[in-house]
Amino acid sequence: MVDNAPLDGKGEKVAARIQSMDETLPSVASTPAPAPSLLVAQGLCKSFGGIRAVENASIEVRPGSITGLIGPNGAGKTTLFNLLSNFIRADTGTVVFDGEPIQHLPPHQIAQQGLVRTFQVARVLSRLSVMENMLLAAQRQTGENFWNVWLKPRQSAREERQQREYASEILESVGLTPMAQAYAGALSGGQRKLLEIARAMMVRPKLILLDEPAAGVNPTLINQICEHIQYWNREGMTFLIIEHNMDVIMSLCDRVWVLAEGRNLATGTPAEVQRDPQVLEAYLGQ
């Protein structure tokens, strides 16, 4: 359903900016072929009281890839995201991101390292404008430091202008420009979803964890989001996507991990996974 139609200029501008403004971003082209994994999680376990939400789950994401994570409702996908980003501390297991173990880091430091997660139920900052939601996400802002508000006002203002421009471009690409000055709390459910993705992009991360980006978004827009994900991906961003919409998974992902009842069930290319009898059984029931 998603073809690789040439994009309009906006997306390309964003991508160009990503590269020009953040040199540390790994780009597929410049990375040597047998790249080490960007994210490796092994033996992750988490139980909530009696419920074993995630049991000895592993996952691996190669740099520059779009990796899918699927599984029936309650399989533990969102919980796995929470463990990776350390919003919930794992009982056991290790997470290595970009060569460094991160399972002991607090969530905000993980985000600063370049691993950003979104939430399944979109969370926006209601009483801030859509634009402010975006600006918040920019990293290493001079004006975020109390003293710099006083000591470096001009540098801070200059950065703010640049970020604002960059944010406008991203908003444009997800179609939220008309809402930029509105309160984020006034957005519809689907628009919130879009804002959340746009906001995650604003962080300029190395890896984005998207939790059901297409849920509640209309089909045309799903296509558009997919195009942008592919576009950003070509420019070097890596994605790990939870999605129930198999069309999206099929068209986007290089590789898919299947989770069921908290355990790894299968992994492979989308086509392989789709043929796997175990996966069919898990989805369709016994």
């Binding site: 950003v116 918040l136 975020e144 962080v203």
Partner: peptide, 23 residues
Amino acid sequence: SPWGRILKAIREDEEVAKALGKN
């Protein structure tokens, strides 16, 4: 300022602020 924006973000939803790398 951006400093104050973080405070407001915390007021609205501190999980979001954390997810976006704010201490």
